[in-house]
Design a protein around this nucleic acid. Sequence first.
DNA 1: CTGGCTGCAAATCTTTTGCATCCTG
DNA 2: CAGGATGCAAAAGATTTGCAGCCAG
Lengths: 132, 132
Amino acid sequence: MIGKYRDSGLKLTPQRIAILDYLEGNIEHPSADDIYKAMSKRFPTMSFATVYNTLETLRRHGQITELNFDPFKKRFDPNPSPHHHVICVRCQKILDVKNAFLLKPPRIESEEFEIIGNHIEFYGICSKCKPR
Amino acid sequence: MIGKYRDSGLKLTPQRIAILDYLEGNIEHPSADDIYKAMSKRFPTMSFATVYNTLETLRRHGQITELNFDPFKKRFDPNPSPHHHVICVRCQKILDVKNAFLLKPPRIESEEFEIIGNHIEFYGICSKCKPR
DNA sequence: CTGGCTGCAAATCTTTTGCATCCTG
DNA sequence: CAGGATGCAAAAGATTTGCAGCCAG
């Protein structure tokens, strides 16, 4: 991930390296706040501005994806290749869905709409939240 | 919609009737703020609390759906029956997708996950935002 | 050395909440 | 006439922004 980052001509500051390290292989789909909290341990002066700036930069360069389906906040996925997700409706835990689904482009009645992508959210209840 | 509402044993105030009227058949997927603005014309004293309270009540009674995939705010769909959507990545216009998709439940590797629903977002560019 | 990056604080935007008052059923 | 609903204002939470100073390339 760091290699790719350097190649894209962006500056590699210690803060960014730390965020890249944290995201690399992270499957928790952390929020900006999660990232900020994790970073604060090693960089007590790290600010939200830096976290958001870095995330936005990474997103613009296609290295992470912004997830918008947690009703409370944006979350980030270090895996930029298209895939789907399942979210626990109780605790908002998000897991990756490995299956691929072939979706034929929908028919939009009212107007021309150029389809460029899709994302499936599965809703469910995770094992921790499942009452036995 | 008003009939259903009355049947559910909830109080029918003028404000609620206005919101129900506004939502009935509305295909714009308005946000709380859109609704508030529209209501303010007829009810200059209508407050956000009332808008949010009413929406939350309607949601709990299964009469509307909350949409979480606009990155900037929650939006509401007066059509509670499951269906999918397409969102314009430029202007955030949301349209209904009428097609049905049969999705087999995904295989989650790491844990038991009881799947209770799904929602597909198609991303695209609407005719207005499409550069010719 | 210079433009991009950081840190801080303030601002903004959306949504929620406490509470006194009101009014539907 | 009681309990739910409203309106107001303040609070809370997430994200953005302005700007001065810093540092990676």
